[in-house]
């Protein structure tokens, strides 16, 4: 495991920001860290990167216990915080900004690397523009470039696409995927689920400071909806056909319109063959036979709602 968090907790007085968080991330993964605002994502990332110390628990990076004093380890990761700090030397140009960090991280051939990175996110034309004139989206992109500038092994991205326009989102997504292809492990926190779904294979859902679920993204969805919902469209559906279908042993529920059926199959076994066979037997030729899959968004809402209900 390249990143391992063991029972991380952080409390501020009576308030518990993070409680016994366990995470395991393998080398080369893009790991999604999901949760609503205030769930504890940023606190967890700050602990993982040594910005704030945990109240209890420990962080292992590259298989070794990590402490913020460990300069060598800090050189091996890049961080994009949720917000670019407002007071950060606004008199710098984009080029000077990256040159400073290249100098700080001792990047070899900084000029070429900076030009290459600026080109990748379409910022090469604003290299000499002062960063105080940058939009939030441009600053966010610059912040991501800063994090990848020294080619780190791990990237911690806290809400990297918030505030970006669709083109910016695509550019950042491509950049993350490209960095991952080059072998970097990426931990990306976000509440924009469609994006996480597109790039992450594994992840965790955090809510109220606790990890509610960790594993494959597809597992989140299947856990939410073990039953399959099938939508069938045909030229004509006979009257009261829904009652007929509901009487079948493998059908949990059914609703029918004049040309449309929605059938919920029971259990975890795949009964699609049985259903289509029955429909053909009844003279109904489906023009559409579609399985409705729950989205990550459904899973996320369901998991976080469940947590809230449990707490209440």
């Amino acid at each position: 495991m390249i990143i391992k968090a063991e029972k991380l907790s952080k409390t501020y007085g009576d308030f518990t920001a993070v409680e016994e968080v366990n995470l395991s991330i393998s080398r080369g993964e893009i790991y999604g860290f999901l949760g609503p605002n205030g769930a504890g994502k940023t606190t967890t990332i700050q602990i993982l990167t040594g910005v704030i110390p945990p109240t209890s628990g420990r962080v292992m990076l590259f298989g070794k216990p990590f402490t913020p004093e460990n300069r060598e380890t800090k050189l091996r990761f890049g961080v994009v915080p949720e917000n670019h700090p407002s007071g950060f030397w606004p008199w710098l140009t984009a080029g000077e900004y990256l040159e400073f960090f290249a100098d700080l991280f001792s990047v070899p051939h900084p000029g070429a690397r900076i030009s290459e990175l600026l080109g990748r996110v379409g910022l090469e034309k604003v290299r000499d523009k002062k960063i105080r004139e940058f939009s939030r989206g441009m600053l966010q992109k610059l912040s991501i470039l800063r994090a990848v500038l020294h080619s780190p092994d791990i990237l911690f991205l806290d809400e990297p696409i918030s505030g970006l326009d669709p083109l910016g989102i695509k550019q950042v997504r491509d950049l993350i995927l490209e960095e991952n292809r080059e072998g970097r492990t990426v931990l990306v926190s976000s509440h924009i689920l469609s994006e996480v779904e597109k790039i992450c294979t594994r992840g965790a859902v955090i809510s109220q400071g606790r990890v509610r679920m960790e594993g494959e993204m597809s597992r989140f969805i299947s856990m939410l909806s073990p039953e399959k919902i099938i939508t069938v469209e045909a030229d004509e559906i006979p009257d009261r056909f829904d009652r007929q279908l509901a009487a079948l042993p493998f059908v949990a529920a059914c609703t029918a319109g004049k040309k449309r059926l929605q059938v919920t199959l029971s259990g975890e076994r795949d009964y699609r063959k049985e259903l289509s066979g029955y429909l053909y037997g009844q003279g109904i030729i489906p023009v559409v036979f579609r399985e409705e899959t729950a989205t990550l968004e459904d899973a996320f809402i369901s998991i976080t709602n469940e947590t809230l209900e449990r707490i209440q």
Binding site: V79, P85, F88, W89, F105
Partner: peptide, 18 residues
């Protein structure tokens, strides 16, 4: 203090400096 409160130091210190 301004840089500390606005996260500038934190931003710079996510690297080889503390």
């Amino acid at each position: 203090c301004f840089e500390k409160s606005t996260g500038v130091i934190e931003f710079v210190c996510c690297g080889p400096v503390d």
